[in-house]
Design a protein around this nucleic acid. Structure first.
Lengths: 265, 265
DNA sequence: CAGTGGTCTAGACCACACT
DNA sequence: GTGTGGTCTAGACCACTGC
């Protein structure tokens, strides 16, 4: 039982860091949370790439000088957050958007009848892909200053030949330097998988705000509906490590053959 | 180490019940899952009422003849499912809708500015409350047969005096016998709390299907908008134990000052 | 077979709430 | 202080995967 609450008894790097001396908060943090933080750092730094296995629980326990049970609890939370995936008998793997199973992890629009599998993949048409300077609302959502360079993409997703989603994407210019309409067009699979493999940006979480709206004339034309057709407006901010926003997405969903499905717990 | 994988070594009531002999599936179920099932049964049977404390981990461990750690893992899952709430130093309590904190656990509509707390509680107006026979669509959603008695309630929720939600509720007639407009009107707090205290029906989970629609003339009038105003159509099925549907709710949300907020993980 | 994650146990100690 | 949940450990064994 060496060093409770500190994986490095000989080193001052960790421990119950209540040295801020700012209030009555003891800032107690359990050991497994500290281990979780260390593993998180390794994930963020790219020590293990998406799809790869991370070291076994025993190895990590040895590395951090804690028991396997403590590492287990840390990994349990990372798995609950969908940052890693456990596979019994094989190991624990860095989660990725490049898998058939979780292809559309963040897309909650499903067909009214049947399921997304039988419907097949969306047919994508990129309409626009241009570099511009962020307006204030886009800048705020992405945590940038107004005028900083951003990439804007407009595209239509169709299911069974029927245009169903019209979306505009805004990406911060710097991390996504080199993204072109061609690369988007040629890429198979989820867009977030492309971000991962080509730009090293892992999307971990997203926040959506949903409203009902009427499309303007151009939006209606692109979706093949009249401007009197009510549509779902879905504004999504996708976040990477440290809840840093890395994509703003404003989409219009047709809901005549599909619906947005949500489960409340 | 008595009786691994069976809390009752002397009784045949539990154990690895692979006696179905239907396929190559061994139907192995870990001990803590079996304990979870037993606790679930006690919750469902009402052995402990909403808001009350369940026995301590040590007591439950003694009752089921397993270690505290196994009970802990079972309760951990129940807490993750929001069936119970853990409070350090006090105990573990049966979750309830009758709490200020989780007052609107299933309502994802939030004001565009500020938060639901400063906005204050919704002002409810019951427009209708009548007994009728289930149409096929309502019957299907509630797991009833067409023609079985159901209760229908129509009401408007207003925030800061502004009508924002128009909803129709359908409830199976038998479990909710005795529900009247008066009881609904007089009740303070969440409607699901009333179901809990007055009818012993605990809502654990819900599934929502969201679309964009235009209201008909009456719906528009009740919400104080024109029939050209797009609205969010939210159809919710609320489920109790064993995923039994106990309420169907069809609501229209105004999204000019509010939005439906969702977090994706 | 060895290696991985998954389960179960027993015991010690910590943090928190109430009395 | 007593009792509760929360953390940490060490060791044993089980279930699954792939060599």
């Amino acid at each position: 039982m060496p060093a409770p609450h500190s994986p490095f008894p000989d080193s001052p790097s960790l421990g119950s860091d209540a040295s801020l001396a700012s209030g009555p908060v003891p800032a107690f943090s359990p050991l497994y949370q500290q281990i979780k933080g260390l593993i998180l750092q390794s994930l963020e730094s790219g020590e293990w790439r998406p799809g790869e296995a991370i070291p076994s629980e025993m190895d990590l326990a040895a590395r951090y000088r804690v028991s396997q049970g403590t590492v287990r609890k840390a990994i349990d939370e990372l798995a609950a957050d969908n940052l890693v995936v456990r596979r019994q008998g094989k190991g624990t793997f860095v989660a990725t958007h490049s898998e058939q199973q979780v292809q559309y992890r963040f897309l909650k629009l499903v067909p009214d009848e049947g399921n997304a599998q039988q419907e097949g993949p969306a047919e994508r048409t990129i309409l626009e892909c241009k570099r511009l300077r962020a307006h204030s609302d886009v800048a705020r959502a992405l945590g940038l200053r107004s005028g900083e360079p951003v990439l804007q993409v407009r595209r239509v997703l169709a299911f069974s030949g029927k245009p169903t989603i019209l979306e505009d994407l805004w990406l911060p210019g710097t991390p996504f330097k080199g993204l072109t309409a061609e690369r988007l067009r040629d890429h198979r699979g989820a867009t977030y998988a492309l971000y991962e493999t080509e730009f090293g940006v892992r999307m971990l979480r997203a926040e959506e705000q949903i409203r009902a709206v009427l499309p303007d004339a151009e939006q209606a034309r692109l979706l093949g509906v009249t401007s009197a057709t009510p549509l779902l407006s879905v504004e999504r901010v996708a976040l990477t490590y440290n809840d840093t926003p890395m994509e703003l997405r404003r989409a219009l969903y047709r809901t005549d053959t599909h619906h947005y499905k949500n489960t409340l717990n």
